[in-house]
Simulated scan of single mutants.
Amino acid sequence: MKFSFRLAELLNHSPDPKKRPGTIKAICDYTGLDRHQVSSLLKNEAKYIPLTALSQLCDFLIKHGYADAGQLPGALFSVEPENFWELLARRRRIEMCLGVRADENWPEGAWVVASDTILQGELLTGISTLGGTAKYQRNHHPAPEPVMLNEMGEQIYDAPIPQPEDLFQTLVWAPGQADNEEVHARAAEVYQNFHAAQGDKALICLGSIRSNPVVEISMASIFNCEPYISQDEVEKPSDRAVPIYLRHREKNVEHPESCSGGKRLSKTETPETPGFYYETADGSWKCAKWDETTYEPAYVLYAYHESQGRLEMSLGGYSGRGTRLLAKTLSSRPEELWPPVYTTGGVQIGAYIVQYELKKQKKNRSVLTADYSATTKVIPIDPEVIHRRIHG
């Protein structure tokens, strides 16, 4: 069992220097701890913490109203997840964000794409049941039976199955459903409200940059670049800020400006095959391709900030077919999306491309009954690819 130190979460401390005026200085002045030690504790990078320092931090938190005495020191520690579903289930607050499309003939209404609701349903099932394993854990230690005694002779009870306390949904306009200013403003509002919320939390964005603009904002945040700014004109593909690139289909009407999508990998490379491209360790780019009959790709990208208990996740298929297939993968093969491919400075990053090859089946145009079957290959993005972008 691994624990993380959640001082940053209790303080609602952001790693952005522009958003943390005086936090470290205030702690140092009150506790007498040195700046380097406080910085390490805020980043969850400290190897150990002396009891005297822990006591001083508890006094600071109580004095400034960040926690009650009865919550401490327990509130400063949190159990870290050990698998994909636990990563989600241990968040106290989960927000699912979906893109919507409007109908000109029904101005008061809007729709969520059917495949996104299927993926959302699989996520909800996995979170609530720990991917189907919760029942086995409950059978192993039925609550509230004590499982052991501590050194004081007190009974310790088995920890409950982790469950979110707050689970809700937000909707944003898909690109092209309103003018860019309105689309971007709504996406920014959702993203900023998520960051402003106190405590342990997760934002799960369903879809791709074609359907959900918050995906664009989250990707840009993870890889330190500007959203809605095309990188199709970089000198070479390795100069792209995001190691995942969505190559649009020619027939797509909407080609939103994006840091992670377009029609060119660089000034000199214009791949024609639609799909998700990804960089490999040697700097070359490969394609998880899409076509009408046989191939379908999907992606999963998440960044987990241990010290803040903050998770941002984006996932979806290249098309609705891919999104449905990804829902099945979450159900049957979640272990292939764990552990995160890269960890740095208290941030764990998971980045995966999934290539599906569909098996031959009778053509079925019914959105209500189509159940695709495909061979599945989950491809983790190489850690070196992430490292080059995080550290330059």
Rank of each mutant, 00 (worst) to 15 (best):
E257M: 12
E257P: 06
E257F: 14
S258M: 02
S258A: 04
C259M: 08
C259T: 04
S260Y: 11
K263P: 00
R264W: 14
T268V: 09
E269T: 05
P271N: 10
P274S: 13
T280F: 00
D282C: 12
G283V: 04
S284T: 14
S284L: 08
D291Y: 08
T293I: 13
T294L: 07
Y295G: 03
E296A: 08
P297V: 07
A298D: 09
L301T: 09
L301H: 04
Y302L: 02
A303L: 09
A303N: 08
Y304T: 01
E306I: 12
S307G: 07
G309Y: 15
G309A: 14
R310W: 03
R310G: 00
R310Q: 12
L311K: 11
E312F: 06
E312Y: 02
E312C: 05
M313V: 11
G316N: 05
G316T: 07
G316S: 04
G320P: 11
G320N: 10
G320E: 09
G322R: 01
R324V: 10
L325I: 00
A327H: 00
K328A: 12
L330D: 01
S332F: 01
P334D: 10
L337I: 01
P339T: 07
Y342E: 04
Y342C: 06
T344N: 13
G345T: 04
Q348I: 01
G350A: 13
Y352W: 15
Y352P: 11
V354A: 07
Q355P: 06
Q355T: 02
L358N: 13
K360G: 10
N364G: 05
R365V: 04
V367F: 03
L368W: 13
T369F: 05
T369H: 09
T369N: 12
T375D: 13
T375C: 00
T376H: 05
